[in-house]
Amino acid sequence: MAKYKNLDPILHSQLRLAVVSILMNVDAADFTYIKEQTEATAGNLSVQISKLKDAGYIEVEKKFKGNYPQTRCLITPLGRERFEAYVNDLKGYISGS
């Protein structure tokens, strides 16, 4: 693990990385869609989304679609910037190994 100590700890986690990877490719995604794509449990996903939100990497919008509550997530400019930096760091590790 020490080998990866310089990688962004917010992104260097399986589920958070999956969530940000999805949001990099779409305008916005609702909670149910992210849950389906990542095959995560609702509880675990909620926790990881909160961590990403607290770090300022994603925005979370809560609104109603018809009569049903909907939680939508979208990536922030900071999240996009950190994701690109993370991918570059990964490439560096792989080419250096």
């Binding site: 693990m1 990866y4 399986q14 958070r16 999956a18 990542t38 675990n44 792989i94 190994s97």
Partner: peptide, 11 residues
Amino acid sequence: MENRETTLSSE
């Protein structure tokens, strides 16, 4: 998908 932070390799 779990959230294993300690075993995630670059690959």
